[in-house]
Amino acid sequence: MDTLLDPLSYAFFQKGLIVATISGALLGFIGVYIVLRGMSYIGHGLSHAIFGGYAAMQLFAAQLYVLGAGLWGVASALAITNVARRSRLGADAAIGVVTTASFALGVALFARFGSSGPAFDNALFGSILGITNAQIFWLLVVTAFTGIVVFTRYRALMFTTFDPEVANVSGVRTGRTEALLMVMLSLAILVTLTVIGVTLVAAMLVIPAVIARMLTDSFAKMLVLSTVVGSFAGLVGMYASYFAEVPSGAMIVLVGAVIFIIVLAATGARGLRRSAGLDSHTETPARQGVR
């Protein structure tokens, strides 16, 4: 028992535990919208895009990294949405160009001006070391912001996710709602980046939401379940990372994957049927436009 409580005596671990739990909850919560819209690839791409801004701010103005990388992330998200919507370039191609270029810029900046030491590795795979009170503060701010937006725009977000064309003609400003979703996603990735890591954030957007979908047919319950699963994975994963001595992001994702396997085994065909099509990158006919 003492061994289990041992890590809690360290302040850095206490902070890490808080951040990991809230990060898991936040990514699980917003992941519901990302998964149901078939936008898992955007979460993956955006985390890489934000790495460019993160690298630049770490090297030149580390104390302003939330602001700088946040603006970078939001700009990337809006650029992806805009390019995919207005040009003939498909969403996949737009993400491929915007996000990998930004990721490459981050790698180049670290290689040219910094080192490929802890900062680089931490950004890629997550770390509980060096979590500051400011990071916890910004995580709480973004979590509260996301919660308030989803609470007050619940039906509009749900309608836009389910049937954007009809939502649009029913008075929902779908363009603005989608942009809001992108902003929330960017900010969520940004404030969870240091614990989960660039390469693993996308997994925590997807895994809790897919697990929740396998367990329920209700949208509201899916939001709650995904949040609970995400926070549980964050909590247990962070704890396990201490004992296993592996990066926190990897352990959190592994815990999520184990929960997925357990739920898959428990729900069987029913769970698979519910989650069918969630991994599709192809847009539904409603989003493609039918003539």
Partner: peptide, 20 residues
């Protein structure tokens, strides 16, 4: 044109029209 696997009940779907 609709994703019928979307997690929503009939009542939830009808109420989407009251998005405001």
């Amino acid at each position: 044109t609709v994703d019928w696997n979307f997690p929503a009940t009939v009542s939830e779907c009808v109420l989407m029209s009251r998005a405001a």
